[in-house]
Structure formats: C-alpha cells, structure tokens
Deep mutational scan, measured.
Amino acid sequence: NITNLCPFDEVFNATRFASVYAWNRKRISNCVADYSVLYNLAPFFTFKCYGVSPTKLNDLCFTNVYADSFVIRGDEVRQIAPGQTGNIADYNYKLPDDFTGCVIAWNSNKLDSKVSGNYNYLYRLFRKSNLKPFERDISTEIYQAGNKPCNGVAGFNCYFPLRSYSFRPTYGVGHQPYRVVVLSFELLHAPATVCGPKKST
C-alpha cells in the first residue's frame, strides 16, 4: 500500500533546468501520483496529453512515469509533440509517434532571462542524422558540413554543433524561455507502482 506522493514538485520547481540537447530525465515510481497538483503548480502555457485524457490521469496506474525536463524558446514548444519536425524535434528531443503522456510548458522569462542575455541554455544546431525517439546526444564533436574532414577544428564548413540561446527579458514571447516537462507513461507487463490517489488504497 503506497502512500508517499510522487515528487513532481522537485521536477517542476527545480531551480535550474537542463539545456534541451542534454535534457534531464527523472524516473518516478512507487508513489501516489496526484496530477491535479500539477494544474495548480504554475499558470501553464501548455498542458497537452496524448493517448490519455488529462482529467482521467488520477484514475490510472502505470509501471513507471518518466519526467523529462529542459528549456526551449516559446515558438519551439509546438515541436514537443508526436510527429513534429524542426531543429528541436530533429536534433535535441524527439517524441515517438505513439507517445503516451503529457507535455507541460510554461513561460520562464522571469527566471531564465537576463538583461545582458542568459547564454547558459544550449541547443544542438547541427547533426548528421535525426534523433530516434527519446535519444539523447550530448556530443560536442565538430560538425563537418563540407567534404573536407574537420579534424576537430572549427572553421570553414566545420561547425561547433551547439548554439546558445541568449534569453533577454525584452524579447518577444516566441523568443522567451519556456520550461518544459514531458511526462511519459510506461505500461509494462509488470506491477503498477505509480497510481492516482483513488487507485492507491
């Protein structure tokens, strides 16, 4: 009989979030998941669920729940959905087409922007091929755009693959930082360890 609440607040209220290319994953298990708490945590810009209804979450049980978190800019949030393409979905964080879970995003301009520009958040701009779903690539190998090998040196047709967002508070919403948490629900042929409040007794 599990009584402890799932530590969603640790994920959502973390002081620092990860850069999207090096997104963070927390496995959540053996706890009571009260998803209604999430609705009250922040004024969400996005709370979209796929393959599951957000209002039914509190009635369900899962084997595992994974919470992935990272920062992107406002106009990239739409890429965090099944079947999307674009720089983020292709080279940084890719959801599977049959994704079961929820994408939660909110504006973090007050936390993640600086007047002089916050350069701490990076994204991958160049990659030889698209990522597979939930693949994480943290390599910093020089990207070869031409025929000549780069031998690890940046220059003509040889690019450092990561680029930094420079978040400034005066930017338009599309270029402001957004914190994203992706909850993916895993149903294996194994005992369910993460249940809503109704199912945990």
Rank of each mutant, 00 (worst) to 15 (best):
P177H: 01
K199D: 13
E186H: 09
V153A: 11
P191F: 05
Y91P: 03
R179N: 05
L38D: 04
F47D: 00
V115R: 13
P96M: 00
C195M: 08
D90R: 09
Y119I: 11
N13E: 04
F47V: 15
L95W: 00
G101N: 00
A18P: 15
T201W: 13
N4R: 13
S108P: 05
V153D: 10
H189A: 15
S139K: 08
G172P: 13
F126R: 10
V180A: 01
K26V: 13
V65E: 01
P96V: 00
V180N: 00
R27E: 10
G172A: 14
A42L: 13
A81G: 07
F185R: 00
T170L: 09
N58P: 15
D97L: 12
R27C: 08
A42H: 12
N4A: 12
T15R: 10
F47S: 07
N118W: 04
V173P: 14
F126A: 13
N118T: 12
Y121L: 10
V52G: 03
F12G: 02
P7A: 11
N118G: 15
A192N: 12
N30Y: 05
S184T: 15
V77G: 02
G101S: 00
V173A: 13
K132W: 03
L5Q: 11
N24D: 13
T140E: 13
A42G: 15
K132Q: 13
N147G: 12
D98N: 14
L187H: 10
S164A: 13
Q176S: 05
K48T: 08
F185E: 01
A190C: 10
G101L: 01
C6T: 04
Y119K: 15
I138G: 07
C49H: 00
P7L: 09
A33P: 12
P197M: 15
T15I: 06
F8N: 02
K110L: 08
N40H: 12
G152T: 08
F62C: 09
F99P: 00
I80L: 06
L131C: 04
I138H: 07
T100Q: 10
V32Y: 11
C158R: 03
I142T: 08
F70N: 01
S184V: 12
T46R: 12
L111C: 08
V11Y: 05
G146A: 08
L41E: 08
W106S: 01
D59N: 11
N40F: 06
F8S: 03
S129E: 15
V173E: 14
D9R: 09
E76W: 11
V181I: 07
N30F: 05
T55D: 13
R136I: 04
D68W: 02
N13T: 07
P7D: 14
G146C: 04
L122C: 13
A33M: 15
R73W: 02
T140V: 10
S139P: 02
V32Q: 10
I2E: 13
V194E: 11
P169R: 09
R78T: 13
C61L: 07
F160Q: 14
S166D: 12
F126V: 13
F17G: 05
K132A: 12
Y171I: 12
F160L: 11
K48N: 10
T3H: 08
D34H: 04
T140R: 10
